[in-house]
Amino acid sequence: MRAGSLALDVAQNENYLRFSTSMIDSFMPMHILVGLDGQILHVGPTFRKFQERKSFVGRNLFKVLVFRQNKPLATIDDLAANTGSVLKAHLINGSVGGLRGNCVTLPDKQGYLLNFGLGPNLYGVVNRFGLKASDFSSSDPTAELLCMTEMQSFLLNESVRLNQRLDGAKRSAEARASRDPLTGLGNRRLLADYLQRLQARESSSFALLHIDLDKFKNINDAFGHSAGDAVLQEVARVLQVETRPDDVLARLGGDEFVAVLGHVDNIAQIQTLADRLIEKISTPVIFGNFSCQVGASIGGVLFDRTWTLDPHYILEEADKLLYAAKDKGRGFAIVQALAKPEGHL
């Protein structure tokens, strides 16, 4: 019967339930009770941790909190007008910002009860004041939120790091895939890409030199592969020194090299360069106690980039001239302007 009469009392009188401040402390550890004169009467245990030297109790609410409403909220009458709306506030002492809460009128209109949460500043405030799970109501998901925040920032860091590593790995894989690892020159793939892209560049003529070493096999046979590698590296160095930075150099494997020279239109000029290359390449390379000498033959073509040419066609034409040079005896360079292919005006 008692339970029934309680139900009746609660139903008939909204103000029937009475809570002690310690009950409210446990349910709402961040609450503030204010009297009708604006004086703070009681502060919840967690909110109390935010006070510096001076206790909050006994002070005027508006000397402790600044409210950030659309309309000014600086008196107890303003507060009365805001019961039921969301209150945004920060502490005047600057220690806690971003508080969110609401305010209700106490039974018998003796004052007001304000309750706050930490809003978006939760993480910072918890760390600053060393708050524990017990500083929050047990029904409050703060602990879950903190756990998620920590995990999220950890996972985000890991993910950013992983992406950076993958990006670096991708770049170096790409660089390796188009480079000859021995000489650092481009490889066949890089050359093909470059010749393809030539079609889209500014109008000017190009020369392609196909360079083949003479007697290279002898070096490997007589002095071993590391001597051969040293010779190939020296040839690469000569090519780099004798050409311009924008020219593209590639090693096609074995002892075959290609140089693509931009902005040249003079056959004689190219012939001079090719002859100089042969001379430099023929200078003996000292490897340990050995003097390794190779020679070179070169077939070269001059072509206009406005002709849409198949890279294979250019290479084949240069190759034909290379074999003609080899037939003449070793150490010759033959350079010709490429005939305009059929279909071009």
Binding site: V126, K132, A133, E144, M148, E150
Partner: peptide, 25 residues
């Protein structure tokens, strides 16, 4: 350490921890 002020509080909060990690991940 958020679990509590003492080691016993911490032990008590361990159960919640696996649940919280489950929520996070």
């Amino acid at each position: 350490r958020f679990g509590g002020e003492t080691y016993v509080d911490f032990l008590m909060s361990l159960e919640d921890f696996s649940a919280r990690f489950k929520v996070s991940m």
